[in-house]
Design a binder for these strands. Structure first.
Lengths: 287, 287
DNA sequence: CGAATAGTGTCTATGAGACATTATTCT
DNA sequence: AGAATAATGTCTCATAGACACTATTCG
């Protein structure tokens, strides 16, 4: 057995590092029933459904990305917000652990999930056990968020092992498991609160990598539903890159990629000419 | 204290994963005094100095990359070759651990070192403790290899903690520390032996990432000495990418990057017109 | 009709690939 | 001179950015 609680300073140097997974999960906006926290104080102010209705902030005009955070309820960094995550059970792949812990916080499965980088500086927590964090980044699409909260991940994942993890290891995980309460809230990436561990650094790196990816890869469509207009896709790119894009050139370049398929249908209920709806196809069109 | 040796099956699921670092260290050729192993059998056949002299394989015509491996001397995977690496001491950054363990195997410090990816599939070793490997990739330049073997890393790194690590953790490290003996040898990446753990997968991924990098970044010059000709730099690119490059266009593109500085000197002792020597500059030339 | 956005066509500058040509050094 | 490689110049084509212009729908 492993005895990990309250290690003395002399004992710490013989303890292997704890390993945890943390996930930066981007979305164009929170799910309607999710809590939204005040940027400055970190106080949960309302759900996204109320907030968006009040402010008139529709995702049509979304110009920023959002991500879920979990409030820690024990030391270290008690009370601060942290990325969803947790320790790695002995029989779970790293990818599975990331997916499961994220689902436990958000109650929904992301549409995309990918490993980002491993952080393990010795300065992360001077008084506690050494912690190595394997960071992931992912994205929630409109469909992922529209689905009702589910207690279990959609894909089959061993989740009973979570409670089997020693308490002392759980203590150092990126965040504690929360049960759909006020300890989970969504934040705009432009207005993040003070974060536990080095999670600010992790988020900065995730945003940087997301921008790199959108320039030479098709990841943006994962923020949308199954069908979308080119204007919607362009707004996703603009939100990620933080700059305006020429609609005409954007259309030409996207269609030249051959990964968009015309569904034949058009947008409904617009106050102007409706746009064609496209679908993403993995297979490039053969010319 | 942590007791990790001979865990029972029921105990294993309560043990936190062991964390180790492994490094894929590329070079245009091994150091002269390094062992070269036979591709098929993994038997150490001679040093690079003898081998290259016999075969007439000069680095001028190098068309493949080489990397150092360490032979394991205990289970699991006893006798197989593995990437240099080891467990993470409590007071060492991940980068430091990678640099130190690589130096312990090669007795030289690499010119470049960067984190690659973290591997942690549960299938890595069914009978042993769960292992998470944080993989690094690096490169040795001509100067790095030309220097005589040094027992300590050139940069100051805490190295006394290595022996403080519990034996059971060392057992699961990427490879055991070798003291410049027959248990360290260099292999061509085209002819690798059977490897321990999932190190074959790690090397494949490292080669793939190296190719990606050379296309939009200046990493190739790190394989060479401080001064080099454009032809030498081109041959490095060709070895990495595995294809021929047009000398004229390569010259134009490299010089347009503004990161090469003309030293004013030229190559010596060529049987033809000598080439200009260039130096790499971090600062782009202002036009 | 006018407003608003969808969608098309075109001009231009830039950069990559191909390759002909000149330059320099050694034997 | 002839061999071998360095170094330069030039042509073409593909692509990105800018932007004018046409099309369609709603109110």
């Amino acid at each position: 057995m492993v005895q990990l609680s309250a290690p003395s300073a002399s004992e710490r140097r013989f303890m292997p590092p704890a390993v945890a997974v943390s996930t930066v999960a981007f979305a164009l906006h929170p799910p309607v029933d999710a809590n939204v926290a005040d940027p400055g104080t970190g106080e949960v102010i309302s759900t996204w459904g109320e907030y968006a209705g009040r402010e008139g902030a529709r995702d049509e005009h979304s110009t920023t990305l959002w991500l879920p955070l979990v409030r820690r309820t024990r030391p270290p960094f008690d009370g601060l917000w942290a990325l969803p995550g947790g320790p790695i059970p002995w029989d779970e792949d790293l990818d599975q652990t990331a997916a499961r812990t994220l689902h436990e916080a958000v109650l929904r499965s992301p549409g995309y999930l990918e490993q980002l980088y491993s952080f393990g500086a010795t300065t992360r927590s001077a008084t506690a056990q050494r912690l190595v964090t394997i960071a992931y980044w992912g994205s929630y699409g409109a469909l992922d968020l529209a689905s009702p909260p589910s207690p279990q991940p959609s894909r089959d994942v061993a989740s009973d092992v979570a409670s089997a993890a020693p308490d002392a290891v759980t203590e150092f995980s990126g965040a504690l498991v929360a049960s759909a309460d006020d300890n989970v809230a969504w934040f705009s990436i432009d207005r993040l609160p003070e974060l536990a561990f080095d999670h600010t650094e992790i988020i900065d790196y995730a945003v940087w990598r997301l921008r790199q990816r959108t320039e030479y890869s098709m990841v943006a469509h994962r923020f949308l539903g199954r069908e979308f207009t080119l204007a919607q896709l362009r707004r996703v790119h603009e939100a990620i890159l933080g700059e305006q894009l020429d609609p005409a050139n954007f259309r030409r370049d996207m269609l030249a990629q051959g990964q968009l398929e015309d569904t034949g249908r058009v947008e409904q209920g617009t106050p102007h000419r409706p746009a064609r709806l496209y679908r993403f196809t993995a297979e490039p069109e053969k010319a």
